[in-house]
C-alpha cells in the first residue's frame, strides 16, 4: 500500500487526510487485468460490452500487462499447471493491488473437485472479493467492483494488507 510518504509522516493526521484523497482516486480508476482462462471470461466480455458497460465504474481500462494494472480479475478455472503463472502475474502487479475471484471455479474449484484443479485461488494468492455463480452474471461483476471500491475507502497507506500471506507455491 505504501507510497513512501508514511516513513516521514508516520501515523499522523496528515497521513489519514492523505489516505482519503488517495483512496478516492484509487476507487474510481481501477485498471483491471483479466486473467481469463475459461467460461467466466466470456461473461466478463459481456460486462465490458455495451449493455453492462463497466466504464460506468471507472474500470474500463483493461490492461493486459500486469505492470499497468491494479485489479486482478481471475475469471475461470485455475489448474495446477496454470497456478505458477497466476502467481507470477500477481507478483508482477505493483502494489496496491486487489484480487477478485470470479465464479465458483476461481473461488473454490467449483464443479471440478479433481486431480488437476486448484481448489480455490486463495490457496495461491490472497483474494479480496469472491463472486459466486457458474458463471456469475455481469451484474455480479459490477457488484464485486463496487465492493472493492468500498473496501478501498477504508484502507490506509500505512497498512500492508497481505504481508503474511502464504500459499501452496510459497
Amino acid at each position: 500500500m505504501a507510497l513512501g510518504l508514511e516513513a516521514s509522516l508516520g501515523n499522523t493526521v496528515i497521513t489519514t487526510r492523505l489516505d482519503e484523497v488517495i483512496n478516492w482516486g484509487r476507487q474510481y480508476s481501477l485498471w483491471p487485468f483479466i486473467f481469463g482462462t475459461a467460461c467466466c471470461a466470456i461473461e466478463f466480455m459481456s460486462a465490458a460490452a455495451s449493455q453492462h458497460d463497466i466504464s460506468r465504474f471507472g474500470a474500463e481500462v483493461v490492461r493486459f500487462s500486469p505492470r499497468q494494472a491494479d485489479l486482478l480479475l481471475v475469471c475461470g478455472t485455475i489448474s495446477y499447471k496454470q497456478a505458477p503463472i497466476l502467481k507470477r502475474i500477481y507478483e508482477q502487479i505493483p502494489d496496491p493491488k486487489w484480487v477478485v475471484a470470479m465464479g465458483a471455479c476461481a473461488s473454490s474449484g467449483g464443479i471440478y473437485d479433481n486431480y488437476c484443479t486448484v481448489q480455490g485461488i486463495d490457496t495461491i494468492i490472497p483474494v479480496d472479493v469472491y463472486i459466486s455463480g457458474c458463471p456469475p452474471r455481469p451484474e455480479a461483476i459490477l457488484d464485486a467492483l463496487i465492493k472493492i471500491q468500498e473496501q478501498i475507502k477504508t484502507e490506509s497507506v500505512l497498512i500492508d494488507r497481505h504481508k503474511d500471506f502464504k500459499g501452496i507455491l510459497d
Binding site: 482462462t37 475459461a38 475461470g76 489448474s79 471440478y112 479433481n114 488437476c116 484443479t117
Partner: peptide, 8 residues
C-alpha cells in the same frame, strides 16, 4: 503448449 485449462 496446451493443457492449462485441463479440468479433468
Amino acid at each position: 503448449e496446451i493443457g492449462y485449462l485441463h479440468r479433468g
